[in-house]
């Protein structure tokens, strides 16, 4: 992201506001002492410009903050949506609760030893569960298993409208068709 960070904008707003207070204070003094002097009028003009600048920068900050927040919300939604997609697909493959857990850990990138430790199971058991998951999913191994879920994101981007289609997909039978198109 090349947009200025909010903290930079905020720092500039604050700097401008403090500078404006100093300048306006001086301009008011001059204006009271010599209301019609060109110097006073110029200062008054600059003071107004400064105040407008602060308002504009503050508004920019507000807009940037709002945008960042909505982006973060969208990211959360996408995360949640991906979890939904995965869950629906695990259902479609008919994974057992234990296999779902192991499958989820595998997708998060944990290796057999780590999964075994987390689940308090023997590595051999985890390896057997992974093999069953891959066979139910019709994939050859972990890389293909993970790629199964990533593929959609690469092809269509993160559009929520797409998720209904993915969630409704009932199994891997539909996938080859999808891939060829």
């Amino acid at each position: 992201m090349n947009r200025p960070r909010p903290v930079v904008i905020a720092a500039i707003v604050i700097l401008q506001a403090v500078a404006t207070v100093f300048f306006v204070g001086d301009a008011v003094t001059d204006l009271l002492n010599a209301p019609s002097a060109p110097h006073s009028l110029l200062e008054a003009f600059v003071a107004v410009a400064l105040i407008l600048g602060v308002i504009f920068a503050g508004w920019q900050l507000r807009v940037t903050l709002e945008r960042l927040r909505s982006q973060e919300r969208a990211l959360d939604t996408a995360r949640g949506a991906l979890a939904d997609v995965i869950s629906a697909q695990f259902d479609a493959w008919g994974l057992t609760p234990a296999e779902r857990d192991v499958g989820a850990f595998a997708l998060k990138g944990l290796d057999v030893g780590e999964i075994a430790e987390l689940r308090g199971a023997a590595p051999g058991t985890v390896r057997a569960q992974l093999t069953r998951i891959y066979s139910k999913a019709g994939v050859t191994g972990r890389a293909q298993f993970a790629a199964w879920f990533v593929e959609d994101l690469l092809e269509t981007g993160l559009a929520v409208a797409e998720i209904d289609r993915c969630g409704a997909a009932t199994g891997q039978h539909e996938r080859p068709q999808h891939r060829e198109t």
């Binding site: 909010p6 905020a10 707003v13 900050l61 960042l68 973060e72 939604t77």
Partner: peptide, 14 residues
């Protein structure tokens, strides 16, 4: 999904 009650940022930079 909790985006509202868990703002990414509590205090903004200003």
């Amino acid at each position: 999904d909790g985006g509202a009650d868990a703002p990414p940022e509590l205090w903004d930079p200003l």
